[in-house]
């Protein structure tokens, strides 16, 4: 699996919940794990590994939730987040953005994230199942 645009239809008993979810994550295996767990939980998942592509995909505004890694190639998660929150660059945007990272932030950037993101998750702190539980609470 190359991790790109691999929408999987739910195979489990869980009925699709109809929520579309974009995962911007360059670590293939993590993307794969999240894709698997979230798809099983009924989400319609798309995984993107590149920053620029992630921004382009996010700007289509067809996702309910976006999981955004910060250290990704070509464009950092912070830059993507800023562009998504700038009405001039992203006129229409309703998705909830959850930052998923293992990187510790400098204080200024952390403040920025707190202002602009809808949630923040340290990946090592949550298992895929806990992530699903968390996302189920994101409305």
């Amino acid at each position: 699996m190359d991790g790109q645009h691999n929408s999987t239809t739910p195979t489990n008993n869980t009925p699709p919940n109809g929520r579309k979810l974009l995962v911007v994550e360059d670590e293939h295996f993590i993307g794969e794990l999240y894709n698997r767990a979230l798809t099983k939980a009924g989400y319609d998942v798309t995984v993107v590994v590149d920053g620029l592509e992630g921004l382009k995909e996010a700007q289509t505004d067809k996702y309910d939730i976006i999981l955004l890694d910060l250290m990704i190639p070509n464009m950092t998660g912070i830059e993507i987040l800023r562009k998504l929150r700038d009405p001039e660059q992203t006129p229409k945007f309703h998705s909830k953005v959850i930052i998923t990272t293992n990187l510790e932030q400098r204080e200024e950037i952390r403040g920025d994230i707190e202002k602009q993101a809808d949630g923040y998750v340290v990946k090592a702190e949550v298992t895929p199942r806990e992530l699903v539980e968390f996302l189920n609470t994101v409305k």
Binding site: E27, F29, I30, L33, Y34, R36, A37, M71, N102, L103, E104, V122, K123, A124, T127, P128, R129
Partner: peptide
């Protein structure tokens, strides 16, 4: 911070796979 990031990535995977096995 960098070392922590590098430690956390395999940890995330480890915990993810354990989670999947367990489930």
């Amino acid at each position: 911070a960098l070392a922590v990031h590098e430690l956390r990535t395999p940890l995330t995977l480890l915990r993810g796979y354990i989670d999947a096995f367990d489930e």
